[in-house]
Design a protein around this nucleic acid. Structure first.
Lengths: 235, 235
DNA sequence: CGCTACATTGACAGCGTTCAAGGTAAGTGG
DNA sequence: CCACTTACCTTGAACGCTGTCAATGTAGCG
């Protein structure tokens, strides 16, 4: 039973998160969950705000409650690479380095839980399940990066877009083949997939013309031919 | 003082490894080092052999003693992506997933230390430094993957090659600007950099013609203009 | 209405892939 | 020692995808 104060309009963390990456609470007892909730602060930010910047001290681990964020990395010469999009349930800032090696920008209004990393990691020393779960979260993040690496190394523009769509379908809460809301701009997609915005636009047009996808609105996608889209995305 | 048996032609692990990634022993006492060495088996394999295959159970963590290996991933449609090259001191098989999501092939005769992962991780529960060091190793692996991701997303062919050269210069033991031995084939480079073998060949010719690099032998590279090569590789 | 930000489309050039031919080096067997 | 094989690498030519530059279209907002 929880003893800490929770504003009544907020559901306990382990009930409000639906994504499969919501793993910190996995296998934990209620008492353990309460201690984990005890070190979490809830914060909000608006579309366009940065949760943290590249090279800032990596003080916190975050867990997305609502909204979508983009992880991005900018190099000396100004080129930007988006390393991933994160959704409710996803974790960010899970690193052992003293500074973040990337920035996190919110694409929508976003609510997150913020864990002080030192406190989280020392709590993990007491709660074996938590330690396992942190490792599990890291492992999943790593697997996704490997997928993206493969896509960037081996796939053509329209295949990369299909990969993104399948990822959204699998990970974005509420996404269905007939309705996937794209919270990111074309530029964000381009920077994620290693393309230009024009190529993204043209590839979308091609996929549309071929009857694989459709747009009900500018940013609402429909996957018309899921088997073919899956096949093109296949890693 | 070491009490376990070490064949006399083999130097203790923590003395034989020079790479900066040799981090498992960092900050450990001699007693701690001995217990870590106690769970290590030494094995060898020939060029072309696989240390482990994609989807095999992830039973072991390896540490390269001598030689060079390539981490690779093959997809359903047969396209191959090389995820990295590893050198003496580097670790591989560091994952929390029950199966390896990639294969590891040796490019040369290779000696490795093999740690049973369960034993390594339970030993880490007793030795705080070891746990920290494992996390540190994971973190470095992750950072390198992010670098590669950026390269694949944003760089042109000749820039990607410069990136590889700088990586080799920094990480391959014995590499100097005027002599870098390339243990991998052109095809391996291509699969690492997301290019075709022909593009690799042509880009090498271009870099040579521009006076940035030279070849003393087919597989022995010389970086002639290090500042320019570094600049092109810049992440 | 006009402003702004974002997205699409067109024309064209260039980079990288593809297909094909030729070259190089090491190893094998007569 | 030399022809032959094999694996790897280089080079050429043509094609096509993607990037670049520029213009146009669209949606939201004051």
């Amino acid at each position: 039973m929880s003893t800490i104060y929770i504003p009544k309009h907020i559901r306990p963390m382990h009930e409000s998160l639906t994504n499969s990456d919501c793993a910190l609470f996995h296998d934990m007892t209620n008492v353990e969950r309460d201690s984990l909730e005890g070190i979490a602060d809830q914060t909000k930010c608006n579309a366009g705000d940065y949760l943290f910047r590249q090279n800032a001290p990596s003080d916190n681990v975050y867990n997305v409650i609502t909204g979508t964020v983009a992880i991005e990395r900018v190099s000396n010469n100004g080129r930007r690479q988006v390393l991933g999009f994160l959704f409710p349930g996803d974790y960010l800032g899970v690193t052992n380095a003293p500074h973040y090696d990337c920035a996190v920008r919110s694409l929508t209004k976003t609510e997150v839980y913020k864990f002080n990393r030192k406190r989280l990691y020392s709590l993990a020393d007491e709660l074996p399940h938590l330690k396992t779960n942190i490792a599990e979260v890291s492992s999943r993040i790593f697997c996704r990066i490997l997928d993206q690496l493969y896509i960037l190394g081996q796939k053509k523009a329209h295949e990369r877009l299909c990969f993104l769509f399948i990822q959204l379908l699998e990970r974005l809460p509420g996404a269905r083949p007939d309705r996937i809301e794209l919270y990111m701009t074309r530029q964000d997609m381009a920077d994620y997939l290693g393309l230009t915005i024009e190529t993204v636009s043209r590839s979308l047009a091609k996929l549309k013309a071929d009857g694989l996808i459709a747009f009900t609105q500018l940013n609402v996608l429909q996957i018309v031919d899921l088997p073919k889209v899956s096949e093109m995305a296949d890693i």
